[in-house]
Write a protein that binds this DNA or RNA. Structure first.
Lengths: 104, 104
DNA sequence: AGTGATACCTCGCATGTCGAGGTATAGGGA
DNA sequence: TCCCTATACCTCGACATGCGAGGTATCACT
């Protein structure tokens, strides 16, 4: 298990509040276009994170269009710390396996 | 998408043929105990990989117990190369995002 | 009037993972 | 003898994640 989208979203929102569409673009750019989170993933994940109390949503109308700005809660920040460590452990483990010449 | 189990299994089998139970232990050790692939994941994945033609299975009886040894096919080796690159791209992207101070 | 970008959303499907359970053999200790 | 652990295979149902296609609406430009 990974939950890459969750990690990337929380990571971005740790810096500043952002709205959905903006987050999608930000993920593409911060991952050097390695990862693209489609809207079919984005919005459901945001809703789930909010329901779990890790995000707080605030609607705002800008230029006649509704934007939903999300910000991290205290618990969200704690959760981000946890899944960041999880990610490092997992990815470190995989990298070790990829290098390991096994017959050693 | 990731398919970590698939990557780790093919990687191990690229070195030498192994059987299921052995693979489970090998994954734990090569990932420095960061990742453990349960049997409920292991066997179904092995069967899928075989069905797709990336693995070849050979049954052998050792000490009265049946072992199913798997080895990589030509196609399996090609596929491993591909998903290894995928992994590096994805994990590199995530790492970039985790570092990126975003306001830059 | 039409197109493209912005901005939100849902739906069904496929895939990946997990835990619990099931079968069977071999070997060691009570 | 009986039981427990380790070995060795397997399936099943449930859940999480991810994907593409589709739907609505506004704004700006042509």
């Amino acid at each position: 298990m990974s939950g890459i989208s969750e990690l990337l979203l929380l990571r971005l929102l740790a810096e500043r509040q952002m709205y959905g569409y903006e987050l999608a673009r930000a993920i593409r750019s911060t991952t050097r276009h390695a990862i693209s989170v489609g809207e079919g993933v984005l919005y459901p994940v945001l809703h789930t994170l909010e329901r779990r109390g890790w995000l707080k949503a605030r609607r705002r109308i800008v230029n006649g269009r509704t934007r939903v700005y999300y910000s991290l809660t205290r618990g969200g920040r704690r959760h981000l710390k946890k899944i960041t460590l999880d990610w490092r452990r997992i990815s470190g483990g995989v990298d070790a396996a990829l290098l390991d010449p096994r017959y050693a």
